[in-house]
């Protein structure tokens, strides 16, 4: 199977993730969209590593996983503290800051 298929798949996953962030109203679901985008980038790295016949891209994928995990820690802390304050994790409800 051609390696280009994997690139197409990662493009599709990245787009789904980006649309999720922009469209979905729940902070946790929007955040899952970000994670999907990061993993789509991982798939791209691994595919290109295979194409170039070297390991660098695969190692980068590990770095990205660690960064994604730390983002989860920080993100959930922020989302949970907002949820405890307001009883909702909807992005539409956080609208106090306006011009």
């Amino acid at each position: 199977m051609s390696l280009v298929n994997y690139l197409v798949l990662s493009g599709i996953l990245f787009s789904i993730g980006a649309v999720t962030v922009l469209v979905r109203r729940n902070a946790i679901v929007a955040f899952m969209g970000v994670e999907l985008m990061l993993n789509a980038a991982n798939l791209t790295f691994v595919t290109f590593a295979r194409m170039h016949g070297e390991l660098q891209g695969q190692v980068i994928a590990f770095f990205v996983m660690v960064v994604a995990a730390t983002e989860v820690v920080i993100g959930l802390a922020i989302i949970v503290s907002i949820f405890r304050t307001r009883g909702s994790a909807s992005i539409d409800d956080v609208n106090l800051l306006k011009s």
Binding site: F14, A18, A27, A30, V34, M37, A41, I60, G75
Partner: peptide, 22 residues
């Protein structure tokens, strides 16, 4: 609220950075 907005948009933009890097 500022924290949530900063976090979501910041994570969104770093995903773009990462894809560009890939």
């Amino acid at each position: 609220e500022a924290s949530l907005k900063y976090f979501l948009l910041g994570a969104f933009s770093s995903a773009f950075f990462l894809m560009g890097m890939a």
